[in-house]
Amino acid sequence: MHSSERIGKLYIVATPIGNLEDITFRALKVLKEVDLIACEDTRRTIKLLNYYKIPVKKLVPYHEHNERKVSKKLIKELLSGKDIALVSDAGTPCISDPGYRIVSLAREKKIDVIPIPGASAVIAALSASGFPTDRFLFVGFLPKKELQLKKTIKEISKLPYTVVAYESPHRLEKTLKILKEMIPEKKIGIYREITKLNEEFLEGNPGKLLNELTLEDKLKGEFVLLFYPSKEEKENENEKSLDEILLQLKEEGNSLKTTVKEACQRTGLPKNEVYKRALELFSRD
């Protein structure tokens, strides 16, 4: 891919999060053809390259401790015509992994940044959890400091959509104890070791999950936490949305019958529920 008469391209390459076979043909092609591979841990990347018999080229360590310094050097390489692949230890770079700085700089320099999509622990966990996926919020790793963690838990526990977070194995027990204290009845899912040999999905309230993980010595590996939407907040959101639709239809001069019919079509809510709410709003005049 190298040419001295062109600006190089930066490829953001997703790599397996566990099972080494979870990688695309396109990703392998890019890794074979680029001039440099910027990687979070050279040992992890060498293992992947060896598995697919890809010659180990010049690997450049690129991690949270050297990101600022190395980004500038890599930009110079790109401007000189070299193509670079950015990989993290597992999954998609920039998603709770290093990468933001070099991508930002590359965009500033008008360098092409090309995503090579693939494995992502967030999407994998969501897709197989059975939790609502029409809307979700990914918050990355939960805060380390207890005060900030409690503040975050309070915020996300009330949200009307699924919240996804990462947690490290050495902090999970403490986090579950705090969850048990703050939101003891909250439905939570824990996906551990996704795509690996001991892959497992656990579901229940914080107390149940804490007992299961500690008693069976499962506080090891990689964890994705999923918080089920708050039913109360979900209902409040639906009610607010319904009210807005009903008031809009009313202000447009529609009759009660037409308003109810149109609101049912837009929201998918039962006719008797919509009619009852519409009556309350129409009777205010």
Rank of each mutant, 00 (worst) to 15 (best):
L31W: 07
E33T: 10
E33Y: 03
L36N: 02
R43E: 11
T45F: 08
T45A: 05
I46R: 15
L49I: 03
N50K: 15
K53R: 09
I54P: 01
P55Q: 06
V56D: 04
K58I: 14
L59G: 13
L59H: 11
P61N: 07
P61S: 13
Y62A: 10
Y62H: 10
H63M: 09
E64G: 06
H65M: 02
N66T: 10
E67G: 05
V70H: 02
K72N: 11
K72A: 11
L74D: 06
L74R: 04
I75F: 10
I75N: 06
L79G: 00
S80K: 14
G81S: 09
K82Q: 06
D83W: 04
A85Y: 01
L86E: 01
L86V: 04
V87Y: 00
S88Q: 03
T92P: 00
C94N: 13
Y100W: 11
R101I: 12
V103A: 11
V103H: 04
A106N: 03
K109W: 08
D112I: 02
P115L: 04
I116V: 15
G118I: 00
G118C: 01
V122N: 01
V122F: 05
A125Y: 04
S127A: 15
S127F: 05
S127G: 13
S129Q: 08
G130W: 07
F131L: 13
F131S: 08
P132N: 10
F136A: 04
L137R: 13
L137K: 13
P143N: 10
K144T: 14
E146S: 09
Q148W: 05
Q148K: 13
L149V: 03
L149N: 02
K150P: 04
K151S: 15
T152C: 14
K154D: 15
E155W: 10
Y161Q: 15
V163Y: 02
A165L: 11
A165D: 10
A165V: 11
Y166E: 05
Y166D: 05
E167K: 07
P169N: 12
H170I: 07
H170R: 07
R171W: 06
K174W: 08
